[in-house]
Design a protein around this nucleic acid. Structure first.
Lengths: 250, 250
DNA sequence: TTCCATTTGTCCGTATGTATC
DNA sequence: CGATACATACGGACAAATGGA
């Protein structure tokens, strides 16, 4: 049915100083269009040809602008279907950090160590609030993830790591701070992608890992913030050690 | 002179499942090229035409791939000069978070509140380590930034906010965790960009802000972690309050 | 199922703007 | 100043994917 708004503004004449590349104007134009019409993730955007007309740019420029916005997950394109507002996820951060981790042959281990440290800071720094905020149902779901880890074992492979990822996602959820949850998940993704390339062995000792997660759940159920923080330490310590070992191996 | 390596790999035939768009293959090809040759930020990349030949793609596809990589700050383009390895900064995160903050008319204040909470967590959660790690010279430099804030006042405008930004960047620097510093700076940038659009007044009371920073410096000099953490609380509390007030104003 | 319209993906040729020598 | 190398931008053409008739 087509939205009835006045369409995308035709790009200001820009007087003399057109220092800015045209595609950047198109990027800003599309951003403004989304904001002006208060679109939400998933909402449809005009077709490429419509954007060309509205913004007075060639299809190449419009497409390059869309590519930039796609990389930032501000728009999402479905081949043969259309262009839509993106999910505004942390995908760009994951890509960027992953590449940084893979690139630096010197300090790549530092990148990994930094990642883990921030994740631990999120959980340990919020220990008091977490043992308060976690309700019984959430703790039961945490226990469920630990059980899944027990069943999955080393065998099926990513059933284990998926449960681990979900566990930590659920752990920080009750904070009500989406940013922490998304950053934590993003760092996890980066770690899982980069670690194998650096000979950092993840989850070599499943049994120990499971026990550490169990201790975290038990501490949460007991509402014991100190024990909770110590359990987190015990969980992150071997991760730090594996990174240090891999670093020493080089 | 041209680097003498075997050039970019010509994209695997990909058997049957060529689900992936060609530009994505080009993206991966350029990434691989950088990794394989261990290039560093600032190093030159092949020209567009060279990449076309090497990867067997048209200029359009190569250019769109470059656009994606520039959005992630993995490559950097200088018009009329060439293409280079990017700085791998957090620019993509800033753009993405900024847009998210501007987009959501409902929970945009939540995005801002989350940002501030993470920044405070970085500094408060590291309080013990910070008062240990900060040496006299660094504390003197912190004091210098506070002095700059005093002189700048409300007058010159961004001399004040620049000093504030530098203060917090320097504050977390001794942790030796670049990720924390870069995230903290990125969140600051997002806050400064988004806040004016939400009628969140930043720095309405310069005098109070200066006093709060001074208290942080004094606590660091006294190596008093508890006082240090309390000073940080006093500093972040009015920020949270301003966001809450703006939220209530809607 | 086939056919068809719509939309994005890819390619090419050309012209222009920009930086360096 | 011109010459060269490179990125920017345009417009047209055809291929591929999607969804509906």
């Amino acid at each position: 049915m087509a939205v009835d708004q006045k369409a995308v503004s035709p790009v200001a004449p820009e007087a003399k100083s057109a220092r800015q590349p045209l595609r950047q104007e198109v990027v800003d134009g599309i951003k403004s269009y989304i904001l002006r019409n208060k679109l939400r993730p998933g909402d449809p955007l005009p077709t490429e040809s419509a954007l060309c007309e509205a913004l007075g740019a060639s299809r190449s420029s419009v497409r390059e602008a869309i590519r930039i916005l796609t990389a930032l997950d501000i728009v999402e394109v479905r081949h043969g279907h259309g262009t839509y507002v993106g999910r505004l996820s942390m995908s760009a951060l994951v890509e960027s950090l992953t590449f940084r981790g893979l690139l630096s042959p010197d300090d790549d281990f530092q990148v990994m160590a930094d990642l883990i440290e921030v994740r631990e800071l999120f959980e340990r720094g919020m220990a008091e609030r977490l043992v308060e905020a976690l309700d019984t149902e959430q703790i039961d779901r945490l226990q469920g993830h630990v059980d899944v880890m027990r069943e999955a074992g080393a065998g099926k492979g990513h059933g284990f790591v998926d449960a681990d990822r979900s566990f930590h996602a659920l752990l920080v959820a009750p904070l009500g701070n989406d940013l922490i949850g998304q950053l934590s998940a993003a760092f996890w993704d980066v770690y899982v992608i980069v670690a194998p390339h650096l000979d950092v062995f993840t989850h070599e000792h499943e049994a120990a890992t499971i026990a550490q997660h169990q201790r975290i759940v038990d501490a949460a159920r007991a509402r014991d913030a100190v024990e909770f923080a110590e359990a987190l330490s015990e969980h992150y310590e071997p991760v730090r050690r594996r990174i240090a070992e891999a670093r020493a191996r080089r």
